[in-house]
Design a protein around this nucleic acid. Structure first.
Length: 299
DNA sequence: ACGCCCGCCTGTAAGC
DNA sequence: TGCTTACAGGCGGGCG
């Protein structure tokens, strides 16, 4: 389940490996992976001949800038993987849905068993029209706003917790606008983008807050703890190149596993002792998702 | 506004 | 052992 730290790790790898490369051919083996396009041929046409200029990220979305102002958007969904391969002769894993070959040699492969992920080429919104008032309330100025103009399909996403820093006061104002439970709000991509089931549980443990605390009811101290926990947990996970769980298929661009799973405090640790107070970690259901927390450390 | 459920998918694992 | 069932969950949509 690639979330922000895993996607950021891939972004860094891609920036080193594919920027400057020119797309020679695109092969689509499963049209579902490019379902936003009328046809696989349409997708190929927008990509072939283009040079990759830069790799950005917004929440869980990878944004590969092309030399004609278009952007190749990649979302890994639940089980998506990107693999950099030196030789086309290397055996293709099952569920390889898209292969991009470069004129300089080598391939970028998109593998996705559950096909929840997707790739599409996006064109920037023509200027003129609206002002910024349609942007989400949480939007910081600068990069995030520019990315949203560059990729109109992602305009609904909330602020990126790593790219769009903000003051505690501002974060508190945003929290007070929602009566949702904290976990549901952290996972709401229109509020903040990039956090999924695993990191929401880790962040809330780090902040010492329960998953079902109403977002609008936090004290100033708790707002600061939550903001700090969010930024630090995600940053630590990026430093460790993300989480690869036993039954998860997340791998980096070279097929290597992440390293953060050993640092998990609560996720997938039902019944195991809390690393802080030794009480067993509790598992429950919240909005249909497995939720792990410590009854003693989180209030 | 918000909580909750479904459908989309496949691989894995538990249950009978 | 072999079949069926449950579970994993990102996201969009729908319903109460």
């Amino acid at each position: 389940m690639p979330e922000l730290p895993e996607v950021e790790t891939l972004r860094q790898d891609l920036a080193k490996e594919v920027v400057g490369k020119k797309v020679k051919t695109v092969s689509v083996f499963n049209g579902r992976s490019v379902r936003r396009h009328p046809s696989a041929k349409h997708f190929r046409g927008l990509l072939e001949g283009r040079t990759l200029k830069a790799v950005g990220r917004l929440g869980k979305y990878l944004l590969v800038s092309l030399d004609n102002k278009d952007t190749l958007v990649i979302h890994l969904g639940m089980s998506g993987q990107l693999l950099r391969v030196k030789s086309p002769k290397e055996p293709k894993p099952k569920h390889t849905h898209v292969v991009i070959t470069f004129t300089q040699g080598g391939e970028l492969r998109y593998v996705d068993p559950r096909t929840f992920g997707e790739m599409f080429v996006s064109s920037p919104q023509p200027p003129a029209s609206t002002n910024g008032s349609s942007l989400p309330v949480g939007m910081a100025t600068g990069d995030g706003a520019a990315l949203r103009r560059q990729v109109p399909e992602l305009a609904h996403l909330g602020f990126d917790p790593i790219e769009d820093m903000m003051s505690w006061d501002r974060f508190g104002v945003l929290l007070r606008q929602h009566r949702t439970g904290l976990k549901a709000l952290l996972m709401d991509q229109e509020f903040v983008s990039g956090i999924g089931n695993l990191y929401s549980d880790e962040i809330l443990f780090s902040a010492g807050l329960r998953y079902d605390r109403p977002a609008s009811g936090l004290t100033a101290t708790e707002v600061r703890r939550l903001y700090r926990a969010m930024v630090e947990t995600l940053s630590d996970a990026i430093k460790h190149r993300g989480s690869t769980l036993v039954d998860e298929q997340y791998r980096d661009l070279f097929g290597e596993a992440g390293d953060y799973q050993g640092s998990h405090q609560v996720y997938d640790r039902e019944g195991e002792p809390c690393r802080r107070c030794r009480n067993p970690i509790v598992r429950t259901k919240a909005s249909g998702r497995s939720t792990y927390y410590c009854e003693h450390c989180q209030v």
